[in-house]
Amino acid sequence: MIETTIHRQNPMIDPAFHAWGWEIPVYLFLGGLVAGLMILSGYHIIRALWDKDRAHGHYVTAPILSLALLTVGMGALFLDLEHKLYVWRLYLTFEVTSPMSWGSWILLLVYPALAASALLTLPQTFPKLARRLPFCSRCAGALHDCPRVVQAIGFANMLLGVMLGIYTGILLSTLSARPLWNSALLGPLFLFSGLSTGAATIHLLAHVRRPDSGSDDFSDAVLSALVNWLRPPAPGHVGTQKLEHADNSFLTVELLLLGLFIVGLLSSTEVHQRAVELILTGPYAAAFWVLVVGCGIVLPLTLQFLQAQHRIRSTVVPALLVIGGSLALRIVIVAAGQASAWTVASH
């Protein structure tokens, strides 16, 4: 029997550590999603160079969407900062041991890479808008004339996507005082979660913006997108089918990594076992098993498998589940991680 009494009442620290609210999970989720989108769209940019016929229109909105999502994510991160006016201090130094420092510099590279790919795809995404911005169109045209540059942009997006995805996990895993996070597997786990979410998002985009919608007017596109939401997707569309396959692979790897993450902690010290119990059997278990594993991975995996077998009709439901599950994964890991500790105080 051990009774520990800590006579301290610091906000965020006592009675239990809780420094991060919704902002950080949202940031990590959007960062992971953007990472996935960058890898997928980067891959698509490169493949489109070899095989123009097989280029699918639904990838092209990804870079612009990524820019928007990343900015929202950065906004969430900024909201979390307690000393906001000093944020510029991030860019006066590079701290080699700090994942956050790495992250802030990676983000600084991600923006131009995304901007380049967005520029590349602008005429295809929003032709009318592109016509209004002749300079951008000219630049896009010029880029398209240099396949090596296009290839470089594609590779840059893929590489930075991988870095960004891994960073969102490593950011947590280096905070060694929270034993639940003490696993480098969080890096690949969040990366593959980002990839599956990215694939699901492109899948959704495919529904929103079909090649057969025909209109190149922005407002028309938006209106038709709304209508398209309500219609079942075109059966057997070659692009979405591939996406489902890809998404299933990512989800499978994600599930595997999640398993390894748990096994790794369970086979570590008592402190780590107690930490992982928080999500396995403890106060975060319901959210973890139902939202993250069940609805976020296993269910969409099953649905997409059945869709691929044409046993059920293809819908956007699996994609939505994957996106929701991905957000839930971040929320659960961030919250339970904060609750995990090296010391256990009775009060």
């Binding site: 965020m12 420094a19 060694s176």
Partner: peptide
């Protein structure tokens, strides 16, 4: 900048904002 990473990194909960 008040990112609180150090709060999370300290096993002694010795820091605060």
């Amino acid at each position: 900048i008040g990112c609180k990473a150090c709060l999370a990194a300290c096993p002694y909960d010795a820091r605060f904002v």
